[in-house]
Design a protein around this nucleic acid. Structure first.
Lengths: 138, 138
DNA sequence: CTCGATGCAAAGAATTTGCATTAGT
DNA sequence: ACTAATGCAAATTCTTTGCATCGAG
């Protein structure tokens, strides 16, 4: 929790017009404090927050992730079905889903080329294209 | 429940070496009885089965879907996070996910062309690539 | 006959919600 | 001060499990 990471977290919240409460700043710091992208679940974030003195309840972690997600700060990714994953990187990009332990990593966007995409059905528009590459340890 | 649809269901089960019990045949018939592909959830299949005289408990629907899935007869698709969807079409193909009402349809496979796919991380192999095209009514 | 399959109800896991309390602006 | 945000526990939703019973081979 350096001054720098706190600033990053606070600015990130400000950018979305979210009130910088103590717990939001703490979570924001864990998410973007080091400027790196991160893949998390409600449980994993709760665990990280609990390791520090910042007390944040699990319900608040859920509510906050939802708020961040609605504000466009993070993006929810569907891969597992049993839990929700969130990504601090919000542009459209593919993911690797490690089937063995259920974790998620970014896949290089430049290496994915979709040369043809099915047309959206009449009366609809594409809002997002999810590409999940499931990998398994050999 | 024609002789024909019952035969389709029974053969389908036999092909996977699954014992053709009364409830499995009933569910198999609902799934592949008309030779069409189908996207279902445990709840929707349970609802269909309940409309008929075939009594099948919800727990059995869940267990059976899992058994069918493990036998490779159907495939689970991750899109929603809140429920599991299954597809009777088991080859790799893209889907449209209708965000408005949360239903799923097949997208034409021929219209999807992936000209480059990220390499699997060292020590892993790709088991499957999921492409979900989220659409929204305009 | 012998096990695998089923049914039910109870257990579980992930997430949401109601409501009183706390804390930004 | 005025409200939005929080914390907790209770409620929900989806899914799995334990165990006695049933039925296909």
């Amino acid at each position: 929790m350096t001054t720098e990471s706190i600033k990053r977290g606070t600015d990130w919240l400000a950018g979305a017009g979210l009130r910088p409460t103590r717990q939001r700043v703490a979570l924001a710091e864990l998410l973007v404090g080091d400027g790196q992208h991160r893949h998390i679940t409600a449980e994993s974030l709760y665990a990280s927050a609990s390791e520090r003195t910042d007390g944040v309840s699990l319900a608040t972690v859920y509510n906050t992730l939802k708020a961040f997600s609605e504000a466009g700060l993070i993006r929810e990714i569907m891969v597992d079905g049993t839990k929700s994953y969130f990504d601090t990187r919000v542009d459209d990009h593919p993911h690797f889903f490690w089937e063995d332990d259920g974790h998620l990593t970014d896949a290089p966007k430049e290496q994915l080329e979709i040369s043809a995409l099915p047309d959206a059905p009449a009366g609809t528009e594409i809002s997002k294209v999810d590409v999940v590459i499931r990998v398994r340890r050999t």
